[in-house]
Design a protein around this nucleic acid. Structure first.
Lengths: 103, 103
DNA sequence: CCTATTGTTCTAAAGTTATAAAACAATAGG
DNA sequence: CCTATTGTTTTATAACTTTAGAACAATAGG
């Protein structure tokens, strides 16, 4: 469905963009789900939004450098860019993933 | 200038709100400055925005629970809610404060 | 009191983002 | 090929954010 997936290189990841990407509850849900279950296709998250909206959120996460997307058949598999994030922002992802969720 | 400063209690701090508050470069500048220099009045940050805009940013940080503001004479002194943040989101603030800044 | 200092609030404009419907694209499987 | 599946892109809208000018409020200091 898409030719080129733009993934920013590790050294150009921006803290502000990463924080912004993770500040949305839908996107945080996506990230937590990948962190807990590993690589997943976009359709497997049970998100409470239309697929065009979900696609937007995946794009924001990808362009911020939080997730890696790769085409596989008709689907897109999403994984966390853990090494890149840990390398550039040590401790950040872990702190966010272990934070208490509801209020 | 203001009667009641609303500071959310520690247990109601929301991760999404905190991340959102810190995802703005102006606000991150404020937080880093307080972290480095300790308590500071609003006027001492040299922010590249009008004072009404600065006031807005301080409010976002305060209402997210990131900073504590207290009146002192005609000024407002701002400090980091370090203990509350560390208690509720262990490691988050440190990860953000030690992150590389430019690109 | 009068004035300066410090920052807030109000108002409004400009910009950005989240949302989804509809159309499209790519692949897999008959 | 034809169809279903999966997700993207386009387009539009509603909601929210950033920004700042102007007016206001509180305190400190003559």
């Amino acid at each position: 469905m898409m030719r080129l997936l733009n993934h920013p290189p590790r050294d150009s990841l921006s803290l502000s963009r990463v924080l912004y990407a993770l500040s949305d509850p839908v996107r945080l849900t996506i990230v937590k789900s990948i962190a807990a279950q590993g690589e997943q296709a976009c359709g497997t998250f049970g998100l409470p939004v239309a697929k065009s909206t979900a696609s937007h959120h995946f794009r924001v996460l990808r362009e911020a450098g939080v997730i890696q997307m790769r085409a596989e058949g008709t689907q897109y598999m999403n994984s966390l860019r853990r090494e890149d994030l840990d390398s550039r922002f040590p401790g950040l992802l872990d702190a966010i993933l272990t934070a208490p969720e509801p209020v």
